[in-house]
Write a protein that binds this DNA or RNA. Sequence first.
DNA 1: AACCTGCATGCTTCA
DNA 2: GAAGCATGCAGGTTA
Length: 739
Amino acid sequence: MSMTVKICMNELCGATTSSQWKRGWPMKAGGVATLCFACGTEYDHVRYCERFHLNEPGWRECKYCDKPVHCGCVVSKYLYECLDSGGIACINCIRSHPLKQLVNDIPNSFSRFGGNWLPSVFSNRMNNITPLTEVLEKHQFTSSNSFKEFSIRCTSGIDTDSSLKSPLPSSTMFVYQSPLSMEPTNNKQNIGSNSASEPQAQQSLGFSLLPKSNMVAEEKIPSFKTEQKSRETVLKAKSGVSIRLKSNKGMASGSDNRVVRPSGEGRGRCHLLPRYLPKMTDQELLQIHGDLNSNCTLTPLFEKILSASDAGRIGRLVLPKACAETYFPHIDKSEGVPLRVQDIKGKEWTFQFRFWPNNNSRMYVLEGVTPCIQNMQMQAGDTVIFSRLDPEDKLVIGCRKATVLEEASALPNPVSGTSLICTDNENLPALMGHEGTSNGDSVQPSMIQEEKKTHTIGSKSKRLRMHSEDALELKFTWEEAQEHLRPPFSKPTVVMIENCELEEYDEPPVFGKKTVFTTNTAKLQEQWVQCDSCSKWRKLPSDVLIPSKWTCSDNVSDPNWCSCSVPEEKEVKRLGKILKFSKEAKKRKVAENCETKQVAPTGLDALATVAVLGENGSEHDESLVSITTKHPRHRPGCRCIVCIQPPSGKGNHKPNCICNVCSTVRRRFQTLMLRKKTQRAELEAEKIKKSQVPVTHTTGSSNELGTGPTVLSANSDDVNKGQDLDLNCDPDRRKDDAS
DNA sequence: AACCTGCATGCTTCA
DNA sequence: GAAGCATGCAGGTTA
């Protein structure tokens, strides 16, 4: 029995289960896709898995069966990335390592590399999984200003003070805005808009033209030409598109600058409930014009926030009765009429506009909307906007993404007392079906924004109300967060990927106070923490978890230092030097990154940097206290290279030493050199390219190609330090010397 | 067994 | 209290 789970190659879709494919999809292995039911992407045979195991560039072996997995197609790329997450096999291993498990149950692991938590692990959405190499090179160890803001949303069960001693619950979602995987502005604004009353950034608003012939329904929608000109403002855009804005100041909506723009339709307009009136900013309308290529007038008709059932797999969008009867064709029969619309990508969609008898009334629905909704990446909580385009009388559909907060509000609480920040499409239906807490007694009115409730799908139903007020939001840069995130108590699984050791944790990291780790003369790790009350530094055992607020009185491990009145230990002076070095190293690194605009140092560069710091530190202080600039979270048992290397970073090993440290360092240098070689080649190629273009100024400097960080090159003496294994050498120089 | 269709139920909002 | 509407669910259909 071999059953293949299909994966939609549309990375924005990623539909996986057979149920998400239209009928005709073969259930047996070896079948080919035709159409993804979720997103509507059409496939031909060539684009799918015939390429699955071909030896194309980019392939790699399955860690379990040694057969090639990654051939370059999206499907295998996905497998490849999952492999990096650990524990997943290729299709060859389907029996022992079910692909289904791979796809539907993405391991929620938390990875560290070189003591730093990888951002990708915090975003376990299928769409957001980022290849390891990209994570390392583009996110992790680049200059600090390249770190994107991310937020940790804690829940009511997590207290920023004391409860943080405990690991975050598994349901806690770390929202990290990856420039690779998320849209550029929306999430950041969402994350940043703690106050829900802030104007919401519009992630996307898609409108497109609809050919007149697309209107299948013969019954015409009433024309907009009858609307009152006096209430219109026509914006002439550069492209010549006229966007007719109907200023209606009396109907401005609440807190934001979103203006309720009634369609101006004569029939039944005044019967529309306010929540269905289109609320669009001028900016949005101006944005729309960029998508329109003809001289047209766009008139928003109505909008509706998608409910769970609207966005669900049933594919039925319930239309507000008044809107349907006002703007859509009149229908007499229950089966209704087909209706064509287009989205922003120019894709045509045909919906069945129909109704059901309901309590002596009618319930209007659009059937078959799932592909369109998926294609527009809409979820429950997002707003679908129906508009008309004049003079062609075309029906267009657009969308407005909900904020993270809105999305959160749209979700029922899966765990009592815990709010889940989740943007995962796939989780949505399941969560929607979770009624155990939907009628929970703990449901409280939102304190974040009263109005918000009327804008979320939870506004109508108890079932969907959740505790958005419980969400706490802590903002850090990714780099800052590293210093607050500490490994959970569970032991990590160390996996080697591309000669890099990754620690995989099943549990999320622990969030706590920033501390400084040092190594004392006995080579034991110590932890320093600053009192929030007296600002004195206190020494604690390295395995103690520090809550976000800590004072001397909390120092239960050493009664001698449990009072703010007690002066600091003498060792603090050394700590001060260490901190100074740490800051300087960071500054140098950032400055160099800005200056040279080179490829950012990788974790291996950071390793070398650490080694340098260790040496310098020892120069300034004879004690063996050392600190890692990139490894603030080391704990006993940590097996990363920084922890296992000699404190001074060099000098204690013979050239032919085969100890774990030396072999690891050798191996890593090889990898680093190889990588740098590639980078250098790329840069040179680029330089040659540029040189062929007329250049007004050239510096003549050539040594910036592929060189390591300043910290490395500043220690050029190390290059000539004989055959001893030298952790501080510049790999490029080393390579040059060798050649 | 999974999916689809049509209707019923019951919660929310409005007048 | 009435109307609207979100969603559950039973029965039919399909793979």
